[in-house]
């Protein structure tokens, strides 16, 4: 009985704080993405063929932890299968944040373009299924500045 109460408290705390944090994060993501729109990042492997460019490797990464509510919902979902939307938003946030950090670094260096952007996502909390996941998203690319 006591354990049930603990779980209920943690789930509601996780729901409350987790949702608040997520909303705040999405808001700041949208704002910063708009600001960074003038610096295009591309997945293309071909650098532009005209003119000379100065280039440097830029990267951005972020580690995001899951909250208790998300872990709980995902645990339930595992029984029935199907879309785990709580994890989808988590990964979406992590990737967008990583890309933004990369762009911000490139912007500081005065770059005009970022080429050959690659994403990499990993779970750094280990293989044990007991521990809630910590996700790391890493984005890297080559920032080009026209000479």
């Amino acid at each position: 009985m006591e354990q049930l109460i603990y779980v209920a408290v943690f789930v509601s705390l996780g729901y409350f704080f987790g949702r608040r944090a997520e909303k705040k994060h999405f808001k700041s993501l949208i704002e910063r993405e708009e600001k960074m729109n003038k610096l295009p990042a591309m997945g293309s492997r071909m650098p532009p063929q005209d003119g000379k460019y100065d280039q440097v490797l830029v990267s951005g990464s972020v580690c995001i932890a899951n909250d208790y509510f998300k872990t709980f919902v995902a645990g339930l979902r595992n029984l029935f299968g199907g879309k785990i939307s709580t994890y989808e938003s988590l990964l979406d946030r992590a990737r967008r944040e990583a890309l933004l950090r990369m762009k911000e670094e490139a912007y500081k260096l005065g770059a005009d373009l970022v080429f050959n952007v690659k994403y990499e996502t990993s779970n750094i909390s280990g293989q044990s299924s007991k521990k809630p996941p910590i996700i790391e998203a890493h984005a890297y690319g080559t920032a080009l500045r026209k000479l």
């Binding site: 943690f10 705390l13 996780g14 704080f17 987790g18 944090a21 997520e22 990267s59 990464s61 972020v62 580690c63 995001i64 932890a65 899951n66 909250d67 208790y68 998300k70 872990t71 944040e97 750094i124 809630p132 910590i134 790391e136 890493h138």
Partner: peptide
């Protein structure tokens, strides 16, 4: 610290820095 963060969600700055240094 990360155990606590795992309740509420959010960024783990310490880990981000650790992996950055490692990279």
């Amino acid at each position: 610290m990360s155990g606590i963060k795992n309740m509420f969600g959010g960024e783990l700055t310490a880990y981000t820095e650790l992996l950055q240094e490692s990279r």
